[in-house]
């Protein structure tokens, strides 16, 4: 049986998630792994928005913030189970994306970039300033998801890092599956078409405004769920989750790995999550080296790491 591109991508992803723990020298790496997965989920959202539909957002951390604080606040104030708080956060993010996206998605290029940036800053300001509810810049506790205890009663005793490695790994596979479904679907095709030529897309009947909005909402839900999972696994969250740096990080990870491809984006998220840990040996030069790596990748591998590497391997085959 021949696997489709989508199946291959999912098998490779699942295999990597399942096999790499065999090589972990310590359980600390489970923690790094789950951080990579959580980042990857947000970055897949950026791939849908920027890679498929060609629209930029520099404020997606705003949605991560909504997802994260939904998990911190809804259980306390609404008595909602944290699992449902994730869903509530996603719904609020989707509604916000709709309300914000309708006016600003008419903008193009850097105008859109600046408008989304404004949205992200707005959310992080609200989270930092509404001390009474959010705890302000110092952050706030997040209740336990409670799933690890349930898994334990079923006879599987995992420590916190292991549990979150598996749980966010599964969430990532699900998120990748959905994004890959979208790529080859009628909606995904229309998104890629409006990326290629907005005028041509409109003349074949594509409602460009509506489709951009759909992509914006879907990607906001990805960011929101990513933020929720981050909050739940850390059991603590600060407004930085919605901050400007986090938004930039998402876009950088996507572009570095290859913004057009889901696997590429995960690769980018993995590299940029691990790199600071690897570069700590260089102490004060850490950020300098990070910047250098990013510049070199962009100069020599414009399409992003994974697509460029794959092309080079294929090129040698021929």
């Amino acid at each position: 049986m021949k696997l489709s591109n989508k199946q291959t991508a999912l098998v490779v992803l699942a295999a990597l998630i399942a096999i790499t723990p065999l090589f972990f020298p310590s359980s600390y790496y489970f923690r790094v792994g789950s951080l990579i997965f959580v980042n990857s989920i947000a970055v897949i959202g950026i791939v849908i928005l920027a890679g498929y539909a060609g629209q930029i957002s520099l404020g997606h951390a705003g949605f991560a913030g909504i997802g994260a604080y939904a998990c911190a606040l809804a259980p306390v104030h609404l008595g909602l189970h944290p699992a449902f708080a994730v869903v509530l956060g996603a719904i609020i993010s989707a509604v916000m994306a709709y309300v914000v996206g309708r006016p600003i998605l008419r903008l193009k290029g850097y105008y859109l970039g600046v408008a989304t940036l404004g949205f992200g800053i707005l959310v992080s300001m609200v989270l930092a300033n509404e001390r009474e509810i959010t705890g302000g810049p110092d952050g706030i506790q997040v209740p336990d998801l409670g799933l690890r205890a349930i898994v334990k009663t079923m006879g599987l005793d995992l420590n916190n890092s292991e549990f979150w490695y598996i749980f966010s790994g599964l969430a990532l596979i699900l998120g990748a599956w959905v994004a890959l479904n979208l790529y080859d679907s009628p909606t995904g095709r229309a998104l890629r078409a409006l990326h290629g030529s907005e005028i041509a897309a409109r003349t074949v009947g594509i409602d460009v405004a509506r489709l951009k909005l759909q992509a914006f909402i879907i990607s906001a839900v990805y960011a929101s769920i990513s933020g929720s999972l981050l909050a739940l696994q850390n059991k603590f969250i600060t407004p930085d989750v919605a901050g400007f740096m986090h938004s930039i990080e998402m876009v950088t990870m996507a572009v570095l790995g290859g913004v057009g491809s889901v696997l590429g984006a995960i690769f980018g998220a993995a590299i940029l999550t691990m790199l600071p840990q690897l570069l700590t040996v260089f102490a004060e030069y850490e950020m300098l080296l990070m910047g250098l790596v990013m510049m070199l990748v962009m100069i020599f591998m414009r399409d992003g790491l994974l697509p460029s590497i794959l092309r080079r391997i294929r090129g040698k085959d021929e």
Binding site: P186, R189, A190, R192, H195, G196, S197, V204, I206, G260
Partner: peptide, 23 residues
């Protein structure tokens, strides 16, 4: 030309069916 350059030739043609294939 207003072609969807990054897409395959077949995908370009399929977009012409957008009104039928959307859902």
């Amino acid at each position: 030309l207003q072609i969807f350059q990054q897409m395959t030739v077949l995908d370009n043609a399929i977009t012409g069916y957008h009104l039928q294939e959307r859902g």
